[in-house]
Structures are given as C-alpha cells and as structure tokens.
Simulated scan of single mutants.
Amino acid sequence: MGVIRRNFDYIGSPVLAGLFAVLFVLESKFQLRRRVQNRWKRVKVNAQVAVPSFALLRFIFLPLMVKLASRNQHICTRLGYFLPSHLLRQILAFFFLDYTNYLWHILNHKIPLLWRFHLVHHIDKDLDLTTAFRFHFGELIGSIFYRGAFTYLSGATPLTVIIYEIAFEAATEFHHSNTRLPLQLEQTLNKVMVTPRMHGIHHSVNKCETNSNFSVIFSFWDRLHGTLNLNVNQDDLIIGVAEYPGADKFKASELLMMPLMKG
C-alpha cells in the first residue's frame, strides 16, 4: 500500500531508528536503573524475539489496520462524525486509539491466555530500550482483532492510523528506555506522557506495582482510572516477574515457545 510506504517506511521508520540510536546512547551514559544482566547478550536475545513481531507488524498488522480505516472514512456512524472539522475528528480518533490501547494493556494482564504471551515481555530482568521490542508475535496476532475493531469504530483515516502507530512505537521506545532524565523534567513530562520512571514501576516484580501505569502514550488514562503509581524509588525496583527468577537464562527460542508450553 502506497500510504504505508510513503508515511511509515520512508518517514516513520527512519524517525524511529533515529530515536532508537539517540536513546541507546543516552541510556548508556545516563543510566536510570542498575543492570543485572549482560547488555549485549540481552540485545541478541531480545532482537531475535522481536524479528517475527516486526514482520507481522509491517506486512500484516499495518495493512489490515489501514484497510479497515479506508473503509470507514465516509460512514457517519463512526466516532466523531458529529464534529464539524475533519481535523478534530482525527484528533479524537487518535486519542480514542490510545485509550483503547490502555484498556488492551490491562486485558493482557487480567486474562490468563493473553498474559501467557505478554509474560515474554515482562520476565526480562532488566528494562531498557531493547525491552520495547521484546514482544511475542502471538500477542500482536491477538491484538489485530481488538485493535482492528476499535480502528474501525474510531473513524480514523489511514494516515491517522499510521501516525498513531509511529507515535505508539516512539512512546514505547522512550518509556522503556533506561534513561535517567532530570527529575523535574520527567515530572513535567509525566503530566501528559508516560516516562521511563513511570513505566519502570509497571515492570516491577511487586504485583501491586505491576498492576499500575498501563498507559502507552498519554499518562492521563492512568490518572483517570486510578491506576497511576509514581511513588516508588527507582533504586528499590526489582524488574521482572517473581515466578521466573531464572528468566535471564532463557534463549530466544525458549521465550517464543513459552506461551505454548505453559500449563
């Protein structure tokens, strides 16, 4: 599809790659949390887990979302049809997509079948930029049905869908990074968007902390629903899942098989 090539391949992908490079350097020089694993070993494992998901995202997920969006542009029963401005309708659709992803993230933690796949992301015992791509491809397949339905209902155009996906990926890179920002800057940013300290709490082995901070781009969904938690010292955080103390020993192939092997 031309709209994907023009906007995701030629614009979005270079932007995301550039952001990755910048954050990789920043988290190397300004580390937020002390690492407990070998960084380069994790890069290799997390990259291998990410490859199938990247392929699905580009060649199945995005084309399907764009196709759904192309069908709903002229249907006046979609979200925001009452707004007089096309721009306002697309802004509303963008926020709606992010809100429904907040809810999807909660479902990934609450529904056992979904958690089997999301667990691959959470058992990483360090949290950094590479964790942002450590998602099981099965999780992405499951999200197609959920996100497809809300893409269809949102009234988003194909361009809005692509812009949202680029913003989604950029936000995921940013808040997973192990970058120590000046505290005052992060507190200011956190009033609107998810930040590394905020998302770090979500990756804690403490389940009360894990069950908080589900937002992806905008932090105010957690504020709205009372799932916000900012009162945890980063030096006290233990990253991972308590039931998997030896997760750092897993190979990429074992991580990809994990959802199918769990009883």
Rank of each mutant, 00 (worst) to 15 (best):
I4K: 01
R6S: 08
N7E: 05
D9I: 14
G12T: 04
S13C: 03
P14G: 06
L16D: 00
A17Y: 08
L19I: 08
A21S: 07
L26M: 14
L32Y: 10
R35C: 04
V36Q: 06
V36S: 14
R39Y: 15
K41A: 14
R42H: 12
V43R: 01
A47L: 15
A47T: 15
Q48R: 07
Q48S: 10
Q48G: 01
V49W: 05
P52R: 13
P52V: 07
A55R: 03
L56C: 08
L56G: 09
L57T: 15
F59K: 06
I60V: 15
F61Y: 15
L64E: 01
V66F: 03
L68S: 02
L68H: 04
A69L: 05
S70A: 12
R71W: 14
Q73S: 06
H74N: 11
R78H: 09
L79K: 09
G80D: 04
P84K: 07
L87E: 12
Q90K: 01
I91M: 13
A93N: 05
F94M: 07
F94G: 03
F96W: 12
F96M: 06
F96I: 03
F96N: 01
L97E: 05
D98S: 00
T100S: 10
N101A: 02
L103T: 03
L103C: 08
I106M: 13
L107A: 15
N108E: 14
N108G: 13
H109A: 11
L113Q: 12
L114W: 11
L119G: 04
H122Q: 09
D124L: 01
D126I: 05
L127H: 09
L127V: 11
L127Q: 11
D128F: 08
D128Y: 03
F133L: 13
R134C: 10
H136D: 05
H136M: 04
G138F: 01
E139R: 03
L140A: 08
I141S: 10
S143R: 15
Y146H: 10
R147E: 05
G148T: 03
A149G: 02
A149T: 13
Y152S: 07
A156R: 01
T160A: 12
T160I: 03
I162W: 00
E165R: 09
F168Y: 15
A170Y: 05
E173I: 07
E173R: 02
R180L: 12
L181A: 08
L183K: 13
Q184I: 14
Q187L: 10
T188S: 08
T188N: 01
N190H: 07
T195W: 06
P196V: 04
R197C: 10
H199P: 09
S204I: 02
S204N: 10
V205W: 02
N206M: 06
C208G: 10
N211Y: 14
S215F: 00
I217V: 13
I217W: 00
I217D: 00
D222L: 02
D222S: 02
H225K: 03
G226D: 06
G226M: 02
T227S: 15
L228Y: 13
N229M: 11
N229L: 13
N229T: 01
N231S: 15
L237K: 09
I238A: 14
G240I: 11
G240P: 11
V241L: 13
A247S: 15
K251A: 11
L255K: 07
P259G: 13
P259S: 10
K262W: 08
G263P: 12
